[in-house]
Amino acid sequence: MMDIAAAIAAERRELADLLDGLPADAWDAPSLCAGWRVREVAAHMSLGFRYSLPRVALELVRARGGLHRMTDRCARADAAAMAPAELAAALRDNARHPWQPPGQGIEGALGHDVVHGLDITVALGLDRRVPEDRLLVLLQRVTPRSLRFFGAALDGVALRADDLDWSYGTGAPLHGTAQDLLLLTFGRRLPPGRVRGEHEDRFVLTRAA
């Protein structure tokens, strides 16, 4: 079995190196997270390391109990306050941090890092390939419940990975790389041309890049 903690640490270090190499204008480019630029995604990725539990509780109160409001507000504030080098360092310096998304376990922590990393690299058109073993851990966790949790509307679609022996669902085939299909299971929309199938238009970004 894969050492998931080691995979998380490697993912964070690799993403930190990638962030360190981004040109200045890339930090203000839109990500796949609606309303967030690259810098907001990077800030959000390290929130669980940088905020104590009392701080999280305080921010939740300020957001009137809304978790999404809290994470959005904190990501925007931290992205404005922290330099790109600080955001990258927050990932690298906490590569072995044991934080996990509430109720999602260590696999959820891996998913958090992998998917938000793809939110950045896919949006920027960077050719980063997530290692196969990390993708398989996450793809094997796709269930109707997880799709509902992430707001992924995949009714009538059968996901078929071109580069891994993985498929999910029933209906009209939708082909793409495993990491692109993983993004769909997390409720993301993709740049044009990344998936192929009868219903591909349902999963394409409509906002300007």
Score class of each variant (00 low, 15 high):
M1C: 11
M1N: 09
I4A: 05
I4D: 02
A5V: 12
A5I: 14
A5C: 14
A7F: 15
A7Y: 04
A10E: 14
A10R: 09
A16I: 11
D17Q: 07
D20G: 14
G21I: 09
L22Q: 07
P23M: 05
P23R: 10
A24D: 15
D28R: 12
P30I: 11
S31P: 02
C33G: 14
C33S: 13
A34P: 15
R39F: 06
E40R: 02
H44W: 04
S46K: 09
G48T: 10
P54S: 06
P54C: 10
V56K: 07
R62G: 03
G66E: 06
G66V: 04
L67W: 04
L67S: 02
H68C: 07
H68M: 11
R69H: 05
M70C: 09
M70V: 04
M70I: 09
M70F: 03
T71R: 05
D72Q: 13
R73I: 08
C74S: 07
R76Q: 13
D78K: 09
D78Y: 12
D78R: 09
A79N: 09
A79P: 12
A80I: 15
A81L: 13
M82Y: 09
A83T: 03
A85P: 12
E86H: 06
A89N: 07
A89V: 02
R92M: 02
D93C: 03
N94C: 02
A95S: 08
A95D: 10
P98S: 04
Q100H: 11
Q100R: 10
P102N: 01
P102H: 03
L110C: 00
H112C: 05
H112M: 04
D113K: 06
D113N: 08
V115F: 00
L118E: 03
D119H: 08
I120H: 05
R128S: 03
R129Q: 14
R129L: 15
V130C: 05
V130S: 00
P131D: 13
E132M: 07
L136Y: 11
V137M: 03
L138E: 03
L138N: 10
P144A: 06
F149I: 08
G151K: 07
G156C: 08
A161P: 15
D165S: 06
D165K: 13
W166A: 03
S167V: 15
G169Y: 02
T170C: 10
L174K: 00
H175S: 10
T177Q: 13
A178C: 15
Q179P: 06
L182M: 01
L182A: 01
L182Q: 00
L183N: 01
T185H: 08
T185Q: 05
F186C: 13
G187N: 12
R188A: 00
R189H: 12
R189N: 13
L190P: 05
L190N: 02
P191V: 08
P191A: 07
V195A: 03
V195N: 00
V195C: 05
R196D: 01
R196G: 00
R196S: 05
G197C: 05
E200G: 04
V204C: 12
T206C: 08
A208N: 14
